[in-house]
Amino acid sequence: MTALLTVDDLKVDIKTRSGTLHAVRGLSFTVNAGETLCIVGESGCGKSITSLALMGLLPRTAQRSAARLRFGDTDLTDARHARKVRGNDMVMIFQEPMTALNPAFPIGDQLTEAYLYHKGGTKAAARARAIEMLDLVGIGSPAERLSQFPHQLSGGLRQRVMIAMALMTDPKLLIADEPTTALDVTIQAQILRLLRDLQQKLGIAVIFITHDLGLVSRIADRVMVMYAGAMVEEGTAAEIFGAPRHPYTRALIDCIPQPGKTERGAPLGTIAGVVPSLIGTVQGCAFRTRCAFARTDCAASVPERAEGSHRWICIHADHPARMTETA
């Protein structure tokens, strides 16, 4: 299968008062057509910055570099080419539906904007398309909605509008950065189901960003685990959940509350220790200060290991706990 999105050695540096923050440190991965890649990791590990870097939406203080950044045949490092893909074949929805829509324009205007810009055609055609998309995302009486303003819609509805807006141009890749975090639990479930249904119906590839591994197990084809701006492990959902190799992945999975196993009201599991500062360089494995299996040579450079499609970066050839279990 040819990759839809190819990312090779992506780096993002952000200038801050206390020095240059290396938010993303050499990330490489691919997304194939029609598949769901979940990017997981603790808060601050660079998931959002990665997605903004792909979209070319980084803040002015951030600097992006990559050996390769391609969408199909398009070189995304060329700003002019990237702008034709962005909002057209590659679209994004965000965490905060309450503020992601412009309060000054009716949603019909905002829905049709990218379509008219990228696809051209008449306003009437764009309007018809908008009605179709609102209907697709399960919004009732879509024609009347077009003249409504964002403040007249609830958070859940706004996120549906955002999804409809993203789908207007019939994209090939949807990047969703924690699209349900800001919503009520019941609405969260609805939006997730909607995204999954749409993905199956339309065959769009999805990059789904979250720190909720429980959710990942339900939707992911492949999973990439990030720590301190870099990948630590990547593989199919079965590989990641069935045989996690990296101690960090294992620790994350152990934090998922298990129905029946985890006691009601028990504190949610957390990984002890703090994330290292992203300012300055990191030598060796960034996780070693919190890792139960760290050795002195973890401070030296650590090898990337692979087993088929399963990749991980660790001094250990397999997860140490598993090695003793199987021994």
Partner: peptide, 8 residues
């Protein structure tokens, strides 16, 4: 950011 994400 949403408007920029549209490629405008």
């Amino acid at each position: 950011r949403t408007a920029r994400a549209k490629g405008l």
